[in-house]
Design a protein around this nucleic acid. Structure first.
Lengths: 207, 207
DNA sequence: TTATTTGTGAACGGAAGCGTATCGTATTCG
DNA sequence: CGAATACGATACGCTTCCGTTCACAAATAA
């Protein structure tokens, strides 16, 4: 383990600035705007400094997208609350999730993601697994526990979880893709979540 | 009304070739590959011929995307079949729809759509209304008729239609966005559609 | 201090694309 | 035929970006 090495140490602030500049460019002007020159300009950093950290543009873009996806995945990985009040937990979970799905941040992320063709396949898969799929699996695990506790009937937790998410989203993701503004206000959204939860519970009532 | 004008007439084949070349480039190598030079090369056309038709690159790209969206919207606007066999009609509809959603063509279209930044807002909205929304509304209308016929209970056809589409899609659209291959084969897909229809009908059974 | 490493600024060659211009040729109308 | 228009091929100037190189300043360990 090497604690120190001779010479000027790497400036960690630069790393932060570079990723922040890449993030700003990616979200505000799309992935094609994330060029080495633009990032260097925005971050207030010389180009060789960029190339010392990333071999080429693709690596830089992948780093930016991956870095952003982690914070995004963290916010996306929600878990329903206590199992005691089944319905309320699902409603809370659904409200949190839809609020996130319709947030400006998530929408911009979806658009940036769709537009970033240079992102390697592994990165996309990683984002998907740590984001949406992780949320589905946590929900499935939660449903399994509820079923074990005899609170509902759920022989296929993963399928049920995905069904719930699908009912919750409806065409909202499609609307996001087409840049069509959501026609729902907060109250309508809450009502939508409640009826969705009721439908879901009706489908999983114990025999 | 001017029927003819002196001079050599415009070659309509060129228009077709240009759009075909743009489509091929857009689908096979992404929107950033749709450059004036590449389209000219692929279409076997000189650059000035392109500029005589489209003022700049954005107009060309928008024309390509819009042209493609029309055929896409046509295929997306499906309607469930006869009302007599409610379940079978929904199953057929669901199978058609999911098969389309998972088709290479639709997946590439989604990717191209997400990546085309030059497409004006009105075009996107138009595509959405004539595509996904039209499908939802036709399904809703069909559900309303079925309810009128006393075959099921459906007080909010539009909401029910969107719920059905959501249950059907699940996270598949998300998978498409993240370029994660679909983990379902044909049989699993049919089974999924059947259970989805059963769930949906269970939620709308008459009291 | 000295050696070593990081960062800066500027410049370079190369590639690619945009939009325009030129010139010669092809096609059609009056 | 002659005028008008469309097309092809090519080239040009311009811009942007990539990835690299150079000399020099800054920071730190030994």
């Amino acid at each position: 383990m090497v604690k120190t090495s001779p010479g000027r140490p790497v400036d960690v602030n630069k790393d932060r600035d570079i990723l922040a500049a890449g993030r700003a460019l990616l979200f505000q002007r799309g992935p094609q705007a994330v060029t080495m020159e633009a990032v260097a300009r925005t971050a207030g950093v010389a180009k060789p400094t960029l190339y010392r950290r990333y071999a080429n543009r693709d690596e830089l873009l992948a780093a930016v997208a991956l870095n952003e996806s982690e914070s995004m995945a963290g916010r996306f990985s929600m878990t329903p609350g206590n199992i005691d009040d089944l319905r309320q937990a699902l409603v809370d979970f659904g409200c949190d999730l839809t609020r996130f799905l319709l947030s400006r941040e998530h929408i911009r992320f979806i658009h940036a993601l769709g537009a970033s063709t240079g992102l390697p396949r592994e990165s996309r898969e990683s984002i998907f697994r740590h984001g949406p799929l992780a949320t589905r699996d946590r929900l499935a695990e939660w449903l399994g526990k509820a079923a074990d506790a005899g609170l509902l009937r759920c022989p296929h937790p993963a399928a049920s979880a995905e069904k719930f998410l699908g009912m919750l989203m409806g065409l909202d993701l499609v609307r996001t893709l087409y840049h069509v503004p959501m026609p729902r206000d907060v109250e309508a959204l809450n009502a939508h979540v409640q009826t969705t939860v009721d439908d879901f519970l009706a489908l999983h009532r114990r025999a």
